[in-house]
């Protein structure tokens, strides 16, 4: 129990991942959904770094570089998503994603 190993990190990442999935499914506020996505990405990153550290060899660098790319992509995704949200709000006067079908043809 005291010896921290790969499994500890994987379990933690699973918890965060599922919390993120639940947030994505259950929130009606578009920003809330976005927060869920960020949680999922973080969980994935923890997995990458933990695997990298505990697999030995040169994988640690690979893992950190991939995690770095994920962070950059998450920032890019958030920027576009927030832009979409403001546009959505300007058109529909709400941020509720259940009203999203109003934009279809």
């Amino acid at each position: 129990m005291l010896e921290i190993g790969l499994n500890h990190y994987l379990v933690l990442a699973a918890i965060i991942f599922c919390a993120g999935v639940f947030s994505m499914v259950s929130k009606r506020n578009a920003i809330g959904v976005l927060i869920g996505v960020e949680l999922v990405l973080n969980a994935v990153n923890i997995n990458f770094v933990a695997f990298g550290k505990y697999s030995g060899g040169n994988t640690s660098i690979d893992a950190q570089v991939i995690a770095l790319f994920v962070i950059v992509l998450a920032a890019a995704e958030a920027a576009v998503a927030v832009a979409i949200c403001t546009n959505y709000y300007r058109n529909l006067n709400t941020i509720d994603i259940d009203r999203g079908d109003a934009v279809s043809g």
């Binding site: 578009a30 920003i31 976005l34 927060i35 960020e38 973080n42 990153n45 770094v49 990298g52 550290k53 640690s60 950190q64 995690a67 770095l68 962070i71 950059v72 998450a74 920032a75 958030a78 920027a79 998503a81 927030v82 949200c85 403001t86 959505y88 709000y89 941020i95």
Partner: peptide, 27 residues
Amino acid sequence: AYFLGVIQIIVYAGGTLVLLIFGVMLT
């Protein structure tokens, strides 16, 4: 993974999160 930890704080906590809150304020 020291570099990654610091980048996580700079990009996520300092950038993305502020952007999200800004989005909340606008909407």
